[in-house]
Amino acid sequence: MAVPSRLLLCSAVVAVALLVAPGEVAAAAGHGHTHTRRLRPKKSAAAAAAKLYPANATRAEAIERQFTRWVRFVGGRLGHGTYNYNRPALTLLPARTLVVDRRPGAGDFTSIQAAVDSLPLINLARVVIRVNAGTYTEKVNISPMRAFVTVEGAGADKTVVQWGDTADTAGSWGRPMGTFGSATFAVNSMFFVAKNITFKNTAPVPRPGALGKQGVALRISADNAAFVGCNFLGAQDTLYDHLGRHYYRDCYIEGSVDFIFGNALSLYEGCHVHAIARNYGALTAQNRQSLLEDTGFSFVKCRVTGSGALYLGRAWGTFSRVVFAYTYMDNIIIPRGWYNWGDPTREMTVFYGQYKCTGPGANYAGRVQWSRELTDEEAKPFISLDFIDGFQWLRL
């Protein structure tokens, strides 16, 4: 039985209001921990939510923080996983499906953004947005409190959402929108899932040294997101893996410079990473800034191919952390493997590792001395779903 959207919104507002207790507007920020799973204390939902906002947060931010706590309660206590192929995830309200088709009358909406905008501002039930085959030339943004959204295409080669903004594109007030705002598809809400769809930024490969040409295909800025069978196509800064814990399986990611970047905690499993660099390029630019931050990228059973001469990663963050395990690397990999971003002091703080990789580009003999070839024990925390706490929130 369908539940009217007005009732959903009212229920959500009541739930949020009940959670905002007097004197609770300014919550203390939580502390991060090093990535040692068996030694790391569990983060409380309150600490994780409070970390996003300072103690002097505005009332609107505080309400959003409390809503995030409530969503985590739904996910953690009631077993609401991101997706579940074997059994339906438990939700407070029933799931529903919306159909997007470019042809008027063939679906519920003719654009993905219109389907997103039809959801309650505070969404509490799993909603599947099924996008039929076609190329959708539009810019999509999912707001922070529209949680539990699944976007499912008809196949990554059949369903494409594309746009062409870059960092120097004029945004509001005529100012450049920056890398953050250039995303074709921006996700700011928790428990997001994408399956069998292509996210594309159509901006061309920039010439070497060009400024302001970063063009993001997808930006994910929220926790507990999964991408299965998706393509991410762009040139510079293709996939902005910004914040949160994320899982990518059987995805194709294409770009030239720093085309997987950000400060998320992400596991890439069985993915194909393809460089289209004309000269030099870099696969990752991970932005971990502190020893206390539990973030990093792990590539397991992936393939790295393409053109140009490619660094495995550049140390965007002082404590940048990236691991490649059981991964095939073509001969495009620069023997040194890693670049310190022009700051030799970062060589003492980054964590760059390989474990049982294969292919002509995987030879560890030429790697920089400040990277490492991992032992079985060192690799263990990086090569399973434990890396992203996946057994807690990801149902396969």
Rank of each mutant, 00 (worst) to 15 (best):
M190A: 12
G313F: 02
P104W: 03
A17E: 13
R314D: 04
L18Q: 04
G30P: 04
L19P: 05
I388M: 01
Y355F: 15
R207C: 01
T169Q: 05
A217F: 08
G234M: 08
A106H: 09
L233V: 15
T202E: 06
T327V: 03
W163V: 01
G229I: 09
L119A: 06
A15Q: 12
S143D: 11
K301H: 13
T179A: 11
M145V: 07
A133Y: 04
H242L: 09
P94L: 03
L233G: 03
Q236T: 08
V193M: 08
F319S: 07
A21M: 10
A222S: 15
A379Q: 15
A125G: 06
G76L: 11
Q369F: 05
L239N: 01
I334L: 11
F259N: 03
A222K: 02
S290Q: 11
D294S: 07
T198K: 01
S266G: 00
D376H: 09
R87I: 12
C271D: 10
P208W: 02
Y328F: 14
G342P: 03
A26P: 12
F319G: 04
A15F: 05
A183V: 07
R303E: 12
I129W: 04
R37G: 00
F319W: 12
E64S: 13
A147E: 09
Y268P: 00
R146C: 05
H35A: 04
A222V: 03
G164I: 01
Y85L: 14
T150Q: 11
A47D: 15
D258Y: 02
T97S: 11
H31L: 07
G75N: 09
V304I: 14
L121Y: 01
F191K: 10
L8W: 06
D386V: 10
S11C: 14
Q162N: 08
V216L: 02
I197C: 03
G75F: 10
H242R: 10
D250Y: 06
H35W: 11
V161R: 00
H246R: 06
H31M: 04
L119H: 06
S189N: 05
A222I: 04
S5V: 14
L211R: 12
V25C: 02
S307Y: 00
N123E: 07
A156K: 12
V300F: 10
A186C: 00
N56L: 14
I334H: 10
A275Q: 06
A55M: 14
Y339F: 12
T318Y: 05
K139S: 04
S182T: 08
V3N: 02
V116S: 02
W338L: 09
A275D: 03
G390W: 00
V160M: 04
R175L: 15
S256P: 04
L233Y: 09
F387L: 09
R96T: 04
M177I: 15
G153C: 02
F180S: 12
A285L: 13
R146Q: 13
E293R: 05
L310W: 05
D258A: 12
K195N: 09
Q113C: 11
C271E: 03
A47Q: 13
E61Q: 15
L243H: 03
F324D: 08
G155A: 02
E61K: 07
L310R: 07
H272T: 09
N132P: 00
A26L: 12
V99D: 05
R77N: 09
F297P: 01
V228C: 00
I383F: 06
D250N: 07
V151H: 08
G32L: 02
N279S: 15
V304Y: 06
V273H: 03
G75A: 13
R367K: 14
D237K: 14
